[in-house]
Nucleic acid binder design. Structure first.
Lengths: 233, 233
DNA sequence: CAGAATCCCATTCGATACTG
DNA sequence: CAGTATCGAATGGGATTCTG
């Protein structure tokens, strides 16, 4: 009965992951699932729909293929996401959040909302298209609840999104921008973030950052005015 | 100007912490501060007021002195908490959240609320007194908003808390239990968690888990009925 | 006792190279 | 494109020690 490699504290932890918090608190359990490096950011990238392995690599500057593979496996085991093989001819694989995975959105957003309060937060760093879209949800000003309905298209790199305000509620989804009364196109997310959060005039971004404005420019300006970074602490 | 140990990707990241997400998203910045192992649980333990080094060690089963020291330093650098030296005669040191640190509470709670949805969450693990108190905030049922005002004392190990409902709002604070119309005493948090979340009768816990009930038992039963684990996914 | 400092080892991370 | 394989570096955890 004498074991050499016993886990010493019996099997109080839930798995043989190696390091467990051994704590009934939901937060501790959440950290076991989403607390490893990159895990929460992978989930963030999936909040607006399924993505391929290489989409995730591109969206997460600095993640290695090894860690991405490990996290996807672990998150799939935990039931946060599933791997799906698309039907032919595009027989490629995508990763998609489960219903439970999608419900992590409030936790992810609250963490971002909190961190953005810091003076040391640097909003000038690179930004993925998805995190731009989700950031808008947390950076909406109270005036947005009274704003008239509107829809703005955003074409960021190769991805297209429609951002809408309906009955005072913000929404963002992957959808073709065609048909939107106003469209912002940019080679990447930062120019659009500059317009939304750094109050850089659209004209400056068109001249210097490759931004392209199509359609109702006045609508865009009203729209941009509905978002701002919070007062810093 | 030729450096050997250059950080290679210029200084895009905000510090020389070694590993940075290099991502403008607030969530990424939050993870740089609270995403390292144990960091968020340390903040959780401070949500109900300042604690000493050894209090934190006791509350976080499994953390090593080394890691606790490192995290406290890092969190202090980031401005999440401060170290204070209590005035003599008790010239000991305590760690206390800054105003910004306290504002992390919603993020920590949302993560816990999300994780508790999982079937694989094990609420039977050890639990600190503080995480019991904060868990109640996330596990309150809608009926709590209509409940009459009440206050319940909880003496857990050597710590005393008063949990209150005032105008339908939940509150928990470190305060003497004396004067509360009903008091639960237990050697540790799990028996109280059993009463709240596993519907174990008070009498069984008194007989087997060292629970002591003082005062208005009917009030306690009503109180306990206002909390429950969420339906699992 | 509070807590900082050290040493050692296992695990994890990150970067590069490689494969089907 | 979607991962594997490999290896050096950094981090985490535990034990021990030192100090006041």
């Amino acid at each position: 009965m004498k074991l050499q490699k016993e886990t010493s504290s019996s099997d109080r932890g839930q798995r043989e992951h190696g390091r467990w918090y051994d704590d009934a608190c939901g937060t501790a359990f959440g950290l076991e699932i989403l607390g490893e490096r990159w895990a929460m950011l992978i989930v963030r990238e999936l909040l607006l729909g399924a993505r391929r392995f290489s989409d995730l690599r591109d969206a997460l500057p600095g993640i290695s293929a090894k860690v991405l593979t490990e996290r996807l496996e672990s998150l799939a085991e935990w039931g946060v996401l599933t791997r799906k093989t698309l039907p032919p001819p595009a027989a490629t694989q995508v990763y998609e959040l489960t219903e439970w995975g999608y419900r992590a959105e409030p936790a992810i957003m609250e963490l971002g909302r909190w961190a953005a309060l810091s003076l040391r937060h640097n909003p000038q760093l690179p930004l993925s298209a998805v995190s731009l879209m989700t950031s808008m949800k947390t950076m909406q000003l109270p005036a947005l609840a009274q704003a008239p309905d509107m829809a703005v298209g955003m074409a960021v790199g190769g991805e297209e999104f429609v951002v809408s305000i309906r009955q005072g509620l913000f929404g963002a989804e992957r959808a073709p921008v065609a048909g939107c009364p106003a469209v912002l196109r940019a080679p990447a997310a930062p120019p659009i973030a500059g317009a939304l959060y750094a109050d850089i005039p659209l004209e400056a971004l068109e001249a210097e950052a490759g931004l392209v404005v199509e359609g109702d420019r006045a609508l865009l300006r009203r729209f941009i005015g509905l978002f701002a970074l919070p007062p810093r602490i």
